[in-house]
Design a protein around this nucleic acid. Structure first.
Lengths: 106, 106
DNA sequence: GGCTCATACCTAGAACATCTAGGTAGATGG
DNA sequence: CCATCTACCTAGATGTTCTAGGTATGAGCC
């Protein structure tokens, strides 16, 4: 149920960013790109469906916001369930990354 | 073409183990489980197809070996192409893991 | 012999996420 | 007028994991 980064589910990264502040899809994609030095560069066709899955599963909540001088935005924020999923997913990720590092060698 | 652990392709972990020594499928699965404290526990239905893909793509080479006191084994070893793929995949993985750690926060 | 267990391989199909390749629309600048 | 940026969206293909089996060898035990 919780997104697992170690299984190739990038939804956990979105939860990570949303833990800081409310953001919208386009912003999330740009933020991922900038703060990872373009290492993580998810196309929109990945981000929007991921957000819809997170909302469907109750991990984030979305609201529409009208913006003067541009298209409207759908802002997402973490739910309580989402916060718990983030903690769990982050733990699983750390364990996996540590194990993988050991197995991959120098 | 090269397996990317950061995209959820566990084939890279198999390349990592095979860089140490020649191994067979059943052994690889057990090795992954033991050395990761059961954090990485791939079912056989994942390992065998993954090895076949790696062989199909020329990253590993397999050979059959008869064994006294048990079923025959198919041993796999890294090819030159596989060694290069391991280096590339490992680099990509380290970069991704570092970026993800930063994005996931505390 | 017959039974169970561990080893060791394999496959088909379902499930799921990414990615490609588009589309829609509003505002801005040349 | 037209290109660009913003901001959202979707359908379909691709690719991998995982489930849930199956096959076969050999050892140990009654």
């Amino acid at each position: 149920m919780a997104p697992r980064l170690d299984r190739g589910d990038f939804g956990l990264l979105l939860l990570g960013l949303l833990a800081e502040r409310e953001m919208y899809g386009y912003e999330l994609a740009a933020e991922l790109r900038q703060r990872s030095d373009a290492i993580i560069d998810l196309p929109e066709g990945t981000v929007y469906p991921a957000l819809r899955r997170l909302e469907r599963d109750g991990l984030v909540a979305g609201r529409w916001a009208e913006v003067s001088g541009g298209p409207r935005r759908r802002y997402y924020s973490l739910t309580i369930t989402g916060q718990k999923a983030l903690v769990k997913g982050r733990d699983a990720w750390r364990r996996f990354a540590s194990a993988a590092d050991g197995l991959l060698g120098s």
